[in-house]
Structure formats: C-alpha cells, structure tokens
Design a protein around this nucleic acid. Structure first.
Lengths: 123, 123
DNA sequence: TCATATACCGAAATATTTTTCCATATATGG
DNA sequence: CCATATATGGAAAAATATTTCGGTATATGA
C-alpha cells in the first residue's frame, strides 16, 4: 500500500506506484484468480491459494479494495458470506500479470536448477 | 530474493518467481536505469535514484548479480571503480517494466488525488 | 450437544527489508 | 594535513510484512 507508512511510497514514480499496488506477497496471484470476472468468496480464494494464510488474504484483499483493484459485496446472511470481484482498474493490470506469468514459466527451469525446488515434487 | 529465507519463495509459481526478482524497493528502477545497455557505476546509479540509500542499492545490485539480471565489472584501481551492466536476462524483463511504467503514468493522477502527493511539488 | 463452516479482526510473535551509522583503503586537490 | 570521493560491508536500529493464534457470531448436520 502506498500510504499510512512512515516512509511513504513515491507516488510520482510511475514504476514504484505500480509496484506498490501488486508487490505484496499474494496480490498478483489474487488478481490472477479473479481475472475472468467471476466473483469469488474468500474461502474459495483460500482454496485456490492454499499456501496463503487466510489472514493475509484478508488483509491484502482489503487493501486491494481500498486501491480500487477489487470490489467487495457483503451479503447480510448467517453464516456470513461475501464476494470479491475484479474491477476495470484491476483488469487493466492483467497485461502486466500476464507478462510476469509467461516470463516466469519461460525461465522457471533455470531458477529451479539454480536455487532448487521449494515445494512441489519433493523426492 | 528467492532463497536463504526461513520462508522460501515458491519457485513453482511463475508469478511469484518473477515477482521475487523485481519486487524489492529499487530493483525495477535499477533495471530501468540500466535499460539502454550502458554500464553505470554505483555512484552514478545513486545520483539517478537519490532517494535510495546507497547501502540498499549495494545490496540489491548484489542480489541482481546473483540472479543474473545484471553483471558487474570490478576495475582493480584506487580509488575503487566498478560498473554494473544489464544482462540479456535482465533485458528480457524490460517489457514488464515498460508496462508497469506506462500503467503508472496513466493512472498516477488518480492515486495522487486519492492519497496525496508525496514528494515533488510540495506547495 | 458438538464439531464444522463462515468472514473477519485483534494481538502478538516472526520474518524480512530498509535505514542509518561507522569503518576500510587510497588518490586527488586545496 | 585534511576533506572528499570512491566501493563495499558489518552491525544495529527501525520499519514493514507475514504468520499464528484465538475470539466473534450463528446455521447446519451428525
């Protein structure tokens, strides 16, 4: 996030502005999960990103709502229900996400060789 | 960086792999400064990114060398001299940087209105 | 009755990143 | 002789981010 910090983000630097919106641990992944426009419940997002602690998703989703990347609908039901849906602003970031995704796929092998596999296929 | 941490980066997620290489505070800016292929001395990089503490540039440049995004030449002179130059791998990230740059320019006004100017043109 | 699922949030513990300060060695210019 | 510039890095402080744990409230189904 770009504010309420002791050391504020330099909003005049376009690069750092953009980075500040997506650099937190799971924000880019969340955008990717919401990419098709279908709204998802928090529990569903957690299912799709099982390594993310639910508390972090909660925090990062709230920040993304504040930044206008995602919008939230709360249904006044019990047990509680809510949904997050990507906004037009959020979608405008998808080309960036796409390029990062394809760069990552293309170069993954090199970095796995370099630094070792971390999670999947432990043998 | 993607290693030597208690909580390792998931190198199997292409998005998080790519992010891990550029998400530190000044890495994307450094790549942008080195984009044209001309080597720069650390002191020159610091002149172009005056808000970055030299110590951070030092650390982040070392990590970028480790990741193969940048290469370093040390000249055995006194006073010491060294140069950093972007590699082909580093250049392959420039399309991502470019998109972040243009996204940032395009949307800057909204975020300045939203969160207030932070550094330049204080009035 | 009891475990489960639901969304969310406070609080504290950890982990990570960035900042600040100091130190190295030596050439140059005042 | 002394300040300055140079590249780098140790160490500690400060800032920020993430993780973990527990608690709210209520419906559902075993």
């Amino acid at each position: 996030m770009a504010y309420e910090k002791k050391i504020p983000v330099d909003l005049d630097c376009p690069l750092r502005l953009t980075m500040s919106l997506i650099e937190s641990k799971w924000k880019s992944c969340i955008l990717d999960e919401l990419r098709n426009g279908e709204p998802l419940r928090p529990s569903e997002i957690h299912k799709r990103l099982p390594e993310a602690a639910p508390r972090v998703l909660d925090i990062q989703l709230r920040e993304m709502v504040e930044d206008g990347l995602v919008e939230k609908t709360i249904f006044p039901e019990l047990p509680p229900r809510s949904e997050y849906r990507i906004t037009a602003l959020g979608q405008s970031l998808l080309p960036i996400i796409d390029r990062m995704l394809s760069w990552g796929k293309q170069h993954m092998a090199v970095f796995e060789k370099k630094y070792g596999r971390k999670y999947s296929n432990p043998e």
